[in-house]
């Protein structure tokens, strides 16, 4: 056992990368749930984003274009969910689940000719002086662009929900859609926009996995991150900064357990492998003891005539 082999700076830098897909998916779902819609299709939208982003990046040679396509593909898939739940009044849980299954199947079909191909590499931001700083350089300034986008997204969602009129309207729709409707807000329209936003974010998260974190395309490569994102939103009490905390915690423990293994710590591998899930849930359950509750209209369909 040799713990000195673990470099804390590199550890923090790589946990940020490991957490980013989760961050994207969770912040998108947070907005969706704030509007009173429960979309269980995060995993499906992520994997569609992963394959669409990968294919576009390979064909065009530009990873950035890949991310744009991924956001588009995620949003496009979520339109299906929006039509089912907002117009056809279908059950949200069932629609979300079927969206995941559909996404997994469709992505496998779309990605068949992309298995084993090498995608173009995304350049890391290299800011001359800042990136060379000891400790802070690799942690704060040595990443790819999308990682910062995820962080800015968290800040932006927090600010919009807390301080702006748009945020108030979104919350009103999520807490009591009848009252919001009586005040003249277009409940269905607002929810559809939220669903699209959630789809685009999930797509970005998927593309982050297939283009940066791995980078490769394989069937089912999101491996349950979408489900973890869903759980994260609940345990984070629908608060953006807690989503960030939870995601980094999860990413951190994931990376630490591999580091411990490589350093030869004598804990059975199985315990190490389950630790990210256990620790993240434990911490967030303790945090959520402050009784902040779910949006009151979460999962309930709205129809103006009822």
């Amino acid at each position: 056992m040799d713990l000195s082999a673990i470099n804390p700076v590199l550890l923090i830098a790589s946990l940020m990368v490991a957490a980013t897909p989760l961050l994207f998916a969770a912040i998108g779902e947070l907005v969706v749930e704030k509007s009173g819609v429960l979309n269980l299709g995060v995993e499906g939208m992520m994997i569609i984003g992963a394959v669409a982003g990968f294919a576009t990046a390979v064909e065009s040679g530009s990873p950035l274009l890949g991310f744009v396509a991924a956001a588009g593909a995620g949003a496009a898939l979520s339109i299906l969910f929006a039509i089912l739940t907002q117009y056809a009044q279908a059950n949200q849980v069932a629609s979300g689940l079927s969206l995941t299954l559909f996404g997994l199947g469709l992505s496998a079909l779309m990605g068949q000719s992309y298995v084993g191909i090498k995608p173009p590499q995304m350049q890391k931001l290299d800011i001359p002086l800042l990136s060379d700083l000891p400790v802070i350089g690799p942690i704060l300034f040595g990443h790819d662009l999308m990682l910062y986008v995820a962080l800015m997204l968290i800040a932006a969602v927090w600010a919009v929900i807390k301080f702006t009129r748009i945020g108030l309207v979104l919350r009103a729709v999520g807490e009591n859609h009848d009252a919001a409707h009586a005040l003249g807000y277009k409940v269905v329209r607002i929810r559809i926009i939220a669903i699209l936003f959630g789809g685009a974010c999930a797509g970005l998260g998927g593309a982050y996995i297939s283009l940066i974190r791995v980078p490769q395309w394989t069937e089912g490569m999101t491996a349950g991150i979408g489900w973890i994102a869903l759980a994260l939103v609940v345990f984070a009490s629908w608060k953006p900064w807690r989503v960030l905390l939870g995601a980094y915690l999860f990413g951190g423990v994931t990376v630490v357990q591999l580091n411990l293994q490589a350093a030869g710590v004598a804990i059975p591998v199985e315990y190490l492998a389950m630790s990210p899930y256990l620790i993240t849930i434990l911490v967030l359950v303790i945090l959520s003891a402050d009784k902040s509750s779910a949006p009151a209209a979460l999962g309930r369909n709205f129809h103006a005539a009822r």
């Binding site: 470099n7 996995i209 490769q216 394989t218 994931t254 591999l258 580091n259 490589a262």
Partner: peptide, 26 residues
């Protein structure tokens, strides 16, 4: 030798993580 057990034959994400950790450890 530093050894990481991935407990999978084929999982690109896990394999990539394992490789990164090993590289970070020198």
């Amino acid at each position: 030798f530093k050894i990481v057990w991935a407990f999978t034959w084929f999982d690109p994400a896990k394999e990539a993580d394992a490789a990164k950790v090993l590289i970070e450890q020198g």
